[in-house]
């Protein structure tokens, strides 16, 4: 356990530094790139398509979009990094008996740590420019984000293991994630959809996370209820299955890398 913690620490440090090695201003891009993305979405959907925040929220569209966009970015980037993590460390795996689950875990963890920094910056910006953040709900927000991490980790384990054998995952994943992005009410309010479609959208777990985060941050919802219970069940089921598949396949990774 001590050994694994030591390796985890070193790998995480390396994973985070690898983003910035050779780029002098890496830390700035970390925040600037998502901000530009936010700018584009806010312009296209808020200005051109005139998307409006749903009833009950008194705030500009961009702020409403921003608090859901960052968790989504962490989630989707985490999945992509995790899926590639085994292949990315092929040289290491083929020579050192490194606990392989740590490679997936550090990939996801690094993404979440980096986007957490961006998220804090965004929340401060929203507070300063647009609307009041319900800071008392922060503990609940952290719990929601922790579940998002577990969810991403579970899917990440599964994808990483499968990608070693079936390289098509690498090609399919970005498209699948884009699809998922548009099927999640991030850039549009769920109320925009007809009644029947809303029920379907509620089957998408990411809908719960996005909606719950907005409720917590803007309406001050700070007591976990049934929705959170769903999150916990789905996340941990996902982690159990993902880890089981990963553990079953991981001894054979080296043969297929």
């Amino acid at each position: 356990m001590i050994r694994e913690r030591g390796i985890f620490g070193q790998l995480l440090k390396r994973e985070i530094r690898s983003r910035f090695i050779g780029s002098a201003t890496g830390w700035i891009w970390l925040v600037v790139t998502p901000l530009l993305l936010l700018g584009v979405y806010a312009f296209v959907f808020g200005v051109i398509f005139r998307a409006r925040v749903p009833e009950g929220f008194e705030l500009p569209f961009w702020a409403w979009l921003a608090v859901a966009l960052w968790p989504w970015l962490a989630f989707s980037e985490g999945l992509q990094r995790a899926a590639a993590s085994i292949q990315q460390h092929a040289a290491l795996i083929s020579k050192v008996a490194v606990p392989r689950h740590l490679l997936v875990n550090t990939s996801v963890c690094a993404v979440f740590v980096l986007h957490a920094i961006g998220f804090v910056v965004v929340l401060l910006a929203v507070q300063g420019l647009a609307a009041d953040i319900q800071w008392l709900a922060v503990p609940y927000v952290l719990m929601i984000l922790a579940m998002l991490y577990v969810f991403a980790l579970g899917l990440g384990f599964f994808l990483a293991a499968v990608q070693v054998f079936v390289r098509d995952v690498e090609q399919l994943l970005p498209t699948a994630l884009m699809f998922w992005f548009f099927l999640t009410p991030i850039i549009y309010p769920i109320e925009l959809l007809p009644e029947g479609a809303r029920g379907l959208l509620a089957l998408n777990p990411m809908t719960w996370w996005v909606e719950e985060l907005r409720l917590a941050l803007f309406s001050g919802k700070s007591i976990p209820d049934q929705t959170f219970l769903f999150m916990v069940v789905v996340s941990f089921t996902c982690l159990l299955i993902g880890r089981a598949v990963f553990n079953r396949l991981s001894p054979h990774f080296e043969d297929f890398l």
């Binding site: 499968v162 054998f165 079936v166 390289r167 079953r248 396949l249 054979h252 043969d255 297929f256």
Partner: peptide, 16 residues
């Protein structure tokens, strides 16, 4: 294991 063509890889994946 045989790992040359994608079919074999997928077969091995499924068996494992």
């Amino acid at each position: 294991p045989p790992t040359i063509n994608p079919g074999e890889r997928f077969g091995a994946f499924w068996q494992l």
